[in-house]
Design a protein around this nucleic acid. Structure first.
Length: 487
RNA sequence: GGCGGUAUCGUCUAGGGGACUAGGACACAGCCCUCUCAAGGCUGGAACACGGGUUCGAAUCCCGUUACCGCUACCA
């Protein structure tokens, strides 16, 4: 580093044992924001050392989730499992420099002692003396090939650090037992693997969930024993469900993929997640990714766990839906319309002005892209389904409604131009002639055109439906009323 | 149990000794706009966990209590 200033390096290190959880996504986001803000590197490490629980499918889900969110990682993905040899070598170094020792105590024996202590209401802590052997004894066991675990020799004193979100945190070492770093089957334990990898990857800031706070003193001890420079630590709060418990499947959608398929915009998700445990310090809430990067700062990180509020997420999505450019929105909408069977991509692109105009009309009334698809149904389908409540409310007087609709139809048929203002002038004039309010025409007309009592402005509906289809729908409504009437 | 962490409206938060009759946002209610629905605007109800200190003065600092969360494995 010629400048002498270390380029920040952060990482996101999930275990591939499920989908990408929203909590994980937020941890990834904070790390990513930090890297982008301070011109550093954001690395991804898959912690797949738990062979039974780790799956390739889960690894793929993590990639997909991060890609959907747009959190691109720098450099190659690191798979913890492929660093096994280094983990072992580091554990051996600890023995060599006297900061760890071999423990030949059978696992079953330790379990027995632990259960014993716990049944008497005592706290079991591994006693170093249990592993105490004379050099000859140790040499003999070693020669015989007896299995042993490697335990870290926790020194006296206090282990403390200046956490970027919690300030000073201290643990008396007497409360930390001599933990295993390498199992008797020669596989590393979590803390060993993490520290070995973080050192190797040159991580300068470890930002992770605060459920790792109690791992931190052990890891700091390992850094020191390995003679490595200590990174900074920042422990961010957990995300809770609406019952205040740690967010889990019971709370509904907890995978970022769930939100992807619910019609959420990645930038809205990111914006919402960022505000869970972080704030700008002022009142800014709705932000683009670029603004998030600009505003991000560990100063704004919160200590308190945050409850995941789906309502606010939806509101946030509505805000982003309204501010995103149509060109940026289109890639989300076209596949959705195709999936709904409304149109092909070619058909949509062939009448781009109409398509974009429709999106503009609907997005302000929607909170998700799924909402837009639902709202768009009338403009793609040929038939209208009349909502019974709408019919009952707006077509109450059958004969009068049929008459008004017929008059409306005739007026629209001869309108000079199929433009909102022209149509509005014509229909308001008609209302005046009939001695009724505009609403008395617009509301029944809305039901005729959409089958519903709610829609965008009626003249926009007419415009986007087109002249031919609009007139056909009014005819159909009149026919429906005629057939329906008691006669 | 031990250790650690946290504590402002229902929820997300601003606040880092006087600017606080505690601000904003979501949600909720009402009003305005209006062809309906949204969006938008305005208004309203709604919080400093409790108890002690320190101080002329505490939401802000200290201690304790309580509650909640996490860890407590040869899981990650």
């Amino acid at each position: 580093m010629s400048s002498g200033i270390t380029r920040p390096r952060v990482r996101f290190a999930p275990s591939p044992t499920g989908f990408l959880h929203v909590g994980g996504a937020r941890t990834a986001l904070f790390n990513w924001l930090y890297a982008r803000k301070y011109d550093g590197d954001f690395l991804l490490r898959i912690e797949d050392t738990d062979r039974v629980r780790s799956t390739d499918e889960s690894t793929r889900a993590i990639f997909e989730g991060l890609e959907w969110l747009g959190l691109k990682w720098d450099e190659q993905v690191v798979y913890q499992g492929s660093n096994l040899e280094r983990h072992r070598a580091d554990a051996q170094r600890l023995i060599a420099n006297g900061s760890a020792y071999r423990d030949f105590t059978p696992q079953a024996e330790i379990e027995r002692l632990r259960n014993d202590a716990e049944s008497r209401g005592l706290t079991f802590r591994f006693d170093r003396r249990l592993a105490d052997l004379t050099p000859q004894q140790e040499a003999e066991k070693l020669a015989r090939g007896e299995p042993f675990a490697i335990r870290f020799k926790v020194p006296d004193g206090v282990t403390e650090w200046l956490d970027l979100v919690h300030e000073r945190i201290a643990f008396p070492n007497k409360d930390i037992e001599d933990f295993v770093v390498l199992r008797s089957d020669a596989t590393p334990v979590y803390n060993m693997a993490v520290v070995s990898d973080d050192i190797d990857m040159g991580i300068t800031l470890v930002m992770r969930g605060d459920d790792h706070i109690s791992n931190t003193p052990k890891q700091i001890l390992l850094y020191r024993a390995l003679g490595a420079r200590l990174p900074q630590f920042a422990h961010v709060p957990m995300i809770l469900g609406d019952d205040g418990k740690k967010l889990s499947k019971r709370h509904g959608a907890t995978a970022v993929g769930d939100y992807q398929y619910k019609g959420l915009l990645p930038d809205a998700m990111l914006n919402f997640l960022a505000l869970l445990g972080w704030s700008t310090g002022d009142d800014t809430e709705v932000m683009t990714l670029a603004q998030l990067v600009e505003k991000f700062d560990v100063e704004g990180l919160q200590k308190k766990a945050a409850v995941f509020d789906t309502k606010k997420l939806e509101w946030m999505n509505g805000q982003h839906l309204a501010m995103i450019s149509l060109d940026a929105l289109e890639p989300f909408m076209t596949p959705a319309f195709m999936k709904a069977g409304y149109a092909t991509a070619d058909e949509l692109h062939a009448r781009k002005d109409w398509y974009y105009g429709l999106l503009e009309l609907l997005r302000v009334r929607a909170r998700t892209t799924d909402d837009i698809v639902a709202l768009a149904a009338h403009y793609f389908r040929d038939s209208v389904e009349y909502d019974l409540d709408a019919v009952g409310k707006q077509w109450r007087d059958v004969a009068a409604t049929a008459a008004v609709l017929t008059a409306t139809r005739d007026r629209l048929a001869i309108v000079a131009a199929w433009e909102p203002q022209v149509m509005e002038d014509a229909l308001r004039k008609l209302a005046e002639e009939l001695g009724i309010s505009g609403g008395k025409i617009f509301q029944p007309l809305r039901v005729a055109l959409t089958g519903l009592t709610v829609s965008p402005g009626i003249f926009d509906v007419l415009l986007y439906l087109g002249r031919e289809r609009s007139l056909r729908r009014i005819d159909a409504a009149v026919a429906y009323l005629g057939q329906d009437s008691p006669a």
